[in-house]
């Protein structure tokens, strides 16, 4: 099954409204889910996701979500945390412990190899030792040698950001981009994210060997509007496209 990964920032737009969406996710249609822990400086996110972080920071309450974490794990939906290293570095062990206790499978840390490159190997090895997946986050700006070396010390799937930040629509060469990463990491699962919304986006990525897609910014519109039906339809439709 190809990966369909919906992304939610915890606490946005508020706990109650977000929970309504978590309640209705067709769990059999998704295999992974990504939760953004609100960051005080979501520096590599676009304006839409940035707003979800600033709202999430005010609302987030761990207690509200623990029963959802339990629910998803019981339904075999693997959970990944999206966290900025700048937020968690001072309480890293405690935070990873919290995620493990809540049955998360792994973590995506978008700023690790960019802002903390010198620490990155140590952090990844530590996660490996803790038996917790580190999901490498790469983009077209990641040099080849770094892609290879970081991938070589991890076993998980790769999160590949197609745009310079979330929700951005800058033209890029899709075929070249996918071919480059496929050539560098043959056989590795590559899941694409950033700026993906339409079925055509997904079809093209799958045609070029992608193993899945993450969708974030595009869901925010539905969450804002409380469009529960639209959300379910969208997830079902995207699952259909992925499975084609």
């Amino acid at each position: 099954m190809k990966n369909l990964i919906p992304y939610f920032t915890l606490g946005y737009p508020d706990n109650t409204r977000l929970c309504r969406f978590l309640d209705i996710i067709p769990v059999e249609k998704i295999n992974y889910i990504e939760f953004g822990f609100p960051s005080i400086d979501p520096r590599y996110d676009g304006p839409v996701i940035r707003k979800t972080h600033s709202v999430g920071n005010i609302n987030f309450s761990g207690e509200v979500y623990s029963k959802y974490f339990d629910y998803f794990s019981r339904n075999h939906v693997k959970m990944y945390s999206l966290s900025y290293y700048s937020d968690i570095k001072d309480r890293f062990d405690e935070f990873i412990g919290y995620l493990q206790m809540n049955k998360f499978s792994g973590i995506i840390i978008p700023d690790l190899i960019i802002d903390y490159f010198n620490d990155s190997r140590k952090v990844i090895e530590k996660l490996n030792d803790m038996g917790f997946e580190y999901i490498p986050f790469f983009s077209p700006a990641t040099p080849d040698s770094i892609i290879k070396s970081i991938a070589s010390i991890t076993n998980s799937w790769i999160y590949y950001g197609l745009q310079p930040s979330t929700g951005i629509e800058i033209p890029y060469e899709l075929d070249y981009t996918t071919e480059r990463i496929n050539t560098l990491l043959p056989g590795r699962e590559i899941t694409y994210g950033f700026g993906i919304k339409t079925d055509d986006d997904i079809k093209n990525l799958m045609k070029n060997g992608g193993s899945g897609v993450a969708i974030g910014t595009y869901l925010v519109k539905m969450i804002d509007a409380g469009d529960e039906k639209g959300f379910i339809d969208y997830i079902e439709k995207m699952r259909g496209v992925l499975d084609e």
Binding site: G46, R50, I114, P143, S145, S165, I168
Partner: peptide, 24 residues
């Protein structure tokens, strides 16, 4: 692609609009 470390992406200069998107 040949740099020794990843190039940091551009960052929006304003909070609620995307200066990156504006490049279009």
């Amino acid at each position: 692609p040949d740099l020794p470390e990843p190039l940091a992406p551009p960052r929006d200069s304003k909070q609620d609009v995307s200066s990156i998107n504006l490049l279009n």
